[in-house]
């Protein structure tokens, strides 16, 4: 009788955890809202296509100075962690979402900074529906998600971001 009760309790808890993870939202533990935007070549890229990896969604723009300063730092992290095995994903990817309005500026900075990770934008500046979906009020802003798209951390920069990534590496 007691064993049955324990099993029921465990089953209930697992259900609650699963249910929480399935909720799409912006809180840690929520499933990150889907983003489908075009890359520089005009091809649609979906955030969900990165399922299985640890992903940093980097909201930035070429008109944002702190964002530009951050790109070389992201490049270092990308190089260091891209092929690593994490407790919450296989490999590290960056999904760069630009709130630019000018295609030329966007492409110029991607080329200048030699950015090799995924870059997407609808070139709608603050009118971009993605800015609304993710409730972004200022740039830079980022969201770290796990292999299932679950939000792990939000708006980490510099050493804090590196520490977070290092903490997820399989020892």
């Amino acid at each position: 009788m007691k064993t049955g009760l324990y099993f029921s309790l465990i089953f209930f808890c697992l259900n609650v955890i699963t249910l929480k993870a399935q909720v799409t939202g912006l809180e840690i533990g929520n499933k990150s809202p889907e983003i489908v935007l075009k890359n520089q070549k005009g091809d649609s890229v979906a955030l969900s296509s990165l399922k299985g990896k640890l992903v940093l969604i980097d909201f930035w723009a070429t008109w944002c100075s702190p964002c530009l300063e951050e790109q070389p730092k992201l490049a270092k992290l990308y190089k260091k962690y891209n092929q690593k095995e994490f407790t919450c994903g296989t490999g590290f990817e960056i999904f760069g979402v630009s709130l630019d309005s000018r295609q030329s500026s966007w492409e110029e900075v991607i080329a200048r900074e030699k950015i090799t990770w995924i870059q997407v934008s609808d070139l709608k500046f603050w009118k971009s529906p993605v800015a609304k979906t993710y409730s972004i009020k200022a740039l830079p802003y980022n969201v770290l998600i796990d292999r299932d798209g679950i939000i792990l951390m939000k708006n980490l920069h510099g050493d804090e971001l590196e520490k977070a990534l290092a903490g997820f590496v399989v020892k």
Binding site: A61, W63, C64, S65, P66, A138, L139
Partner: peptide, 9 residues
């Protein structure tokens, strides 16, 4: 309006 005055170039 890109960012706070301190960061604006």
């Amino acid at each position: 309006g890109c960012c706070p005055f301190g960061n604006c170039p």
